[in-house]
Design a protein around this nucleic acid. Structure first.
Lengths: 249, 249
DNA sequence: TCTTAAAATGCAGTTTTTTGCATTTTTAAT
DNA sequence: ATTAAAAATGCAAAAAACTGCATTTTAAGA
């Protein structure tokens, strides 16, 4: 077994489980614990994972800080959320996706605005339930732990039975040519259902994600009616999007 | 279990509840209290939380009266939840109701216990989603703001399609003669559906509520298979319940 | 193909870290 | 002041990490 293979396997395991034990890996790969230790040490110095006593954990595995305290690029997301809010008026029926930008949107809904909101995100639902004038409907299903959203066949089926004015969604990656893409296949299925359930789809997306792509495609860029980012509409980053039939905010 | 995982779990709990007891954490994580103490001490020195006598509190939780207000009731509810937990074993499929006692039950589920949990309470779902070995399924529907539970016809319909080993429920009022009663008609409908969806129903109920009643009836006392309260089984309060076919814990 | 240097691997002995337990001290509540 | 719970302390067993060294594997050049 090559060193590269081994290290890749280790990384895969870490990504998959968020954590690994050195002893487990040693047994699985059938090499000595010392070798695994050295591999992990190397990967740690390459910033591919974090070595801890007895094992290693994935870099993104700070459940707590990721969830609450440490919303990355909060300022930008707040700007986006505020812009997106201008689309809403009393009586709108909308869907709000999971993800930190959408959570920010939910948080910023004014108390006097009367809305009906569908969501499949637990944090969004919690946030919305604090607003007296918002009717909240949670789309049930199995809960995906990391994202705290309901997911799976049941969720998708439930989505097929609703129709909202606006869907506010986020995405992992977006590119004018490749459209919206994701790292995770299940998420793609979910977002497809969300888009289908909406008369109009609004994409909330920080500029950082513009012109990036990944493995699985959610939809073409044309499926999006409005895209909201925090940069000025004249910005060069948006050039490639202008040709499409997308309204930029 | 890795030290990092443990500390991450502790931080999660603190963020979620603003306050934790070392003894609870020790039990949940299945490690000695000393280990928890050392972890909390470490996290404190890293400014991730604030250690106090007997437990820890979240950093943003300096001045809060809700804490003290809740502590007394919490004590009894914790006892009840612990008792109720003894009914569970690996692989059980259960339903957990809303309400503070049920939330406490969800909180105290040990990390190594493998369960499938249905719920219609947002806080319970959030709590459960922090447990790696628990499969969480949220019963969707319109969210009732105060209770943060899903409610209404849709919820009841969804409940009609499941069957679990145990339902853990709370109640507004309970009396050996009048059975379980509620102030709210919609809640009654919901609880009826929950009881129907369970092979066995477990009532979690602090002694304070024993021998009280209200307007709308959920069910007779016979519909309950097990009742868990914090007082000793010999207590005089329970006399009237003994004649019924109810198992007391 | 053969040779050789460099890299990788496994092993044994040592050091460090972690953890639980017993004992003492401190703290908080009555 | 009394008392019970929690914290600190010291200690020992166990697990993990580190170190140096011998052996094997890999890679490169003649």
């Amino acid at each position: 077994m090559l060193k590269e293979e081994r290290q890749q396997t280790i990384l895969n395991e870490v990504e998959l489980h968020n954590r690994i034990l050195l002893t487990d890996i040693a047994e699985t790969l059938d090499v000595s614990i010392d070798t695994v230790r050295r591999d992990v040490k190397e990967l740690d110095s390459e910033q591919k994972l974090r070595k801890v006593h007895g094992g290693a954990i994935s870099l993104g595995f700070t459940t707590n800080s990721a969830r609450n305290a440490n919303i990355y690029a909060l300022d930008e997301k707040t700007k986006i959320a505020k812009k997106a809010l201008t689309l809403l008026k009393d009586g709108s029926v909308i869907f709000i996706d999971g993800g930190t930008t959408c959570l920010e949107l939910a948080r910023l809904i004014p108390v006097n605005l009367e809305l009906t909101c569908f969501t499949l995100s637990l944090p969004v639902a919690m946030e919305l339930s604090a607003k007296p004038n918002v009717t909240v409907i949670f789309i049930g299903g199995q809960i995906a732990k990391e994202a705290q959203i309901s997911i799976g066949a049941n969720t998708i089926h439930n989505l097929s039975e609703i129709k909202v004015d606006y869907s506010f969604i986020g995405t992992g990656y977006v590119d004018s040519q490749y459209g919206l893409t994701e790292f995770d296949w299940d998420i793609v299925q979910l977002k497809k259902a969300v888009i289908k359930a909406a008369k109009k789809t609004v994409l909330l997306c920080i500029s950082e994600k513009l012109n990036s792509q990944h493995r699985y495609k959610t939809c073409e860029i044309n499926a999006i009616n409005t895209m909201v980012t925090e940069v000025e509409p004249e910005n060069v980053l948006l050039n490639s999007f202008r040709s499409h039939d997308v309204h930029l905010l």
